[in-house]
Design a protein around this nucleic acid. Structure first.
Lengths: 116, 116
DNA sequence: TTGAATACCTTGCAATACAAGGTACTGAAA
DNA sequence: TTTCAGTACCTTGTATTGCAAGGTATTCAA
């Protein structure tokens, strides 16, 4: 049982990895968010991601010019770093939309083939 | 232009990565294939994968018990190693089908949110 | 002043995709 | 018979990157 679960879990993780940047850009395209709220939103659609993954990723996307951020005070804890998508980010997002569509279409095609 | 292409290309690659094992299992669920023909079939649906990725992956899946293989002579070159999916492989594939559906659904949900 | 909740970030390990380079078999051309 | 092109297999080394674990800092309430 251990083994079975391991293989599947591992693969689910891998699948998520591929779309992480994409889904973060999608979320930020809908509105500014801070890291913890992004993680929360992803969890809500069953895309589980760790802090140790998210923070470096946001920093990377910022460095690439796809995101920017601003600090905002919070009444319930430390200040929050709100990330927002840039124009370049939106451009890239359009490309990722297309990439996702293509991938989903590809998988669909193979899937149909295996159901013959 | 270089930068833009780089970001997108990089992401497309990452997306593909996540579904590689899944798509290979799907292909083999439809019939036995050898490495080169698997690569070819993936290319046909725009999932580009290198030899250096595929061979180690097939060996890994064999070790995990999801695949087996048999040698078969070819009239146009060296013998071919035909891989076939095992019962365990089919079990795992069912799990990956579910994982893919869940991921696709998740992305779809986020996508709708960003179009508000 | 202590503790819980929230939020930020870094370090080190492990997994793995892939470019590049290598081996080996077949059949045809030189 | 040697050479070359085509096909097919595989390995090595590098770079990327997800994540568990550990760390810092702020707020508020007890």
């Amino acid at each position: 049982m251990e083994t079975n679960t391991g293989i599947i879990e591992n693969n689910k993780t891998q699948m998520r990895r591929g779309v992480l940047e994409y889904s973060i850009l999608l979320i930020l395209a809908a509105g500014d968010e801070y890291a913890s709220s992004i993680i929360q939103k992803l969890k809500e659609v069953n895309i589980i991601v760790a802090e140790g993954t998210t923070y470096p990723l946001l920093i990377r996307l910022k460095k690439l010019g796809l995101l920017n951020y601003r600090w905002e005070e919070s009444t319930q804890g430390p200040p929050r770093k709100y990330y927002m998508i840039t124009d370049l980010g939106r451009e890239q997002l359009a490309g990722l939309d297309a990439a996702w569509d293509e991938l989903a279409k590809g998988i669909d095609t193979i899937r149909k083939g295996s159901k013959a």
